[in-house]
Amino acid sequence: MIVARIIAALLLVFGSTALRAADCGSLAAASPDPLAGYAENEAGELRNQLMGARERLADCPDSEPLWYTVIRASELGLGEFPLTIARQEFASPQALAREAASRAPRSARIATVLARLDSSVASARHALALDPAWGPAALALASALAAEGANAEAESVLAGAAGIKSVPGANTTRAAILIGLGKPDQAAALARRDLTAQWPDSPEPFLMPIVRREAMATLGLALLAGHHPKEAAVQLKAAAALGSERAQAALGKLQQGNK
């Protein structure tokens, strides 16, 4: 069953090389989500989908499914920039996402990717307004609010969000908010959940190593805030080894404090 879904998704994304612009409408109608067959994806699979969608956009420049495929994979670090699509060059994932949003202005999931890349409260509010039931948009808004120190509002957004438990990393975001609210022990407990959780019904494709890395980094920060420096160092080192800049920064401060 899983194999059949994967094959179907690939066929919808890549299609026949002979498919022209006249077929774009039928493509969108047949598959509002060409990545529906995926939850956790290997990087190679997502990179292949990005390249396939990139080629198809030359014929279907207003296809929401194809734009979403390209920008989500790029957001996950799988695109090489500058990236050329339909003879137009994009310098960064943000520039690509802005183009996608202009092509599909009513797409909540494209707006959500743009909001995450921009780290903008205004952009996240716009994404959530497009579809209040889109869990990733609520999570993006909560993250943006927390980054600005509005932790109480961020917690309120998540408390009323539909389907938030199916979104990878939701516990980690909640944990970061709780750290800001001065509740490090509760934060650590939540972050630990994302070290082992699975998301078979994820609304978006994702890469598990990124989710685990962010959970480790947030757990380390929670332990640090809770005055458990030795335990914190273990988590921060693991997260830093996986590329977490915030874990690396926290680890550097912790090591300086120990001198």
Results as ranks from 00 to 15, higher is better:
residue 6 I to P: 02
residue 231 E to M: 03
residue 241 A to I: 04
residue 49 Q to C: 04
residue 7 I to T: 10
residue 249 A to M: 13
residue 57 L to H: 08
residue 221 L to W: 01
residue 103 R to L: 03
residue 24 C to H: 05
residue 65 P to L: 05
residue 56 R to K: 15
residue 69 T to A: 15
residue 231 E to G: 12
residue 228 H to N: 11
residue 206 F to V: 05
residue 132 P to F: 07
residue 258 N to F: 05
residue 169 G to W: 01
residue 211 V to L: 00
residue 60 C to A: 10
residue 236 L to W: 02
residue 161 A to S: 15
residue 13 V to L: 14
residue 74 S to C: 00
residue 92 S to P: 11
residue 227 H to N: 15
residue 68 Y to K: 00
residue 232 A to W: 04
residue 257 G to C: 01
residue 249 A to Y: 02
residue 153 E to W: 00
residue 118 D to V: 01
residue 147 A to L: 09
residue 59 D to F: 09
residue 229 P to Y: 06
residue 212 R to T: 11
residue 32 P to S: 08
residue 125 R to D: 05
residue 236 L to Q: 04
residue 184 P to G: 08
residue 112 T to D: 10
residue 102 S to N: 14
residue 131 D to F: 05
residue 152 A to P: 04
residue 30 A to I: 06
residue 66 L to G: 03
residue 220 G to A: 00
residue 110 I to S: 09
residue 14 F to P: 00
residue 202 S to I: 13
residue 210 I to F: 07
residue 166 S to F: 01
residue 176 A to P: 01
residue 181 L to N: 03
residue 108 A to D: 12
residue 206 F to T: 00
residue 16 S to K: 08
residue 65 P to Q: 07
residue 66 L to R: 06
residue 56 R to N: 13
residue 54 R to F: 07
residue 120 S to Q: 07
residue 96 L to F: 07
residue 230 K to I: 13
residue 129 A to Q: 15
residue 194 D to F: 02
residue 199 W to Q: 11
residue 90 F to I: 09
residue 75 E to I: 03
residue 226 G to A: 15
residue 173 T to E: 15
residue 210 I to G: 03
residue 237 K to F: 03
residue 223 L to P: 01
residue 242 L to M: 15
residue 139 L to F: 10
residue 237 K to V: 04
residue 152 A to Y: 06
residue 148 E to T: 14
residue 192 R to N: 10
residue 27 L to K: 09
residue 45 E to G: 02
residue 186 Q to L: 08
residue 203 P to W: 05
residue 5 R to N: 14
residue 236 L to K: 07
residue 228 H to Q: 14
residue 166 S to I: 08
residue 43 A to T: 01
residue 47 R to V: 03
residue 175 A to H: 00
residue 17 T to D: 12
residue 116 R to D: 14
residue 139 L to E: 05
residue 253 K to A: 14
residue 10 L to R: 12
residue 126 H to F: 13
residue 72 R to Q: 12
residue 3 V to D: 14
residue 188 A to M: 08
residue 220 G to I: 02
residue 212 R to H: 01
residue 13 V to G: 09
residue 84 T to R: 11
residue 231 E to W: 02
residue 138 A to W: 02
residue 35 L to D: 09
residue 250 A to K: 05
residue 56 R to H: 10
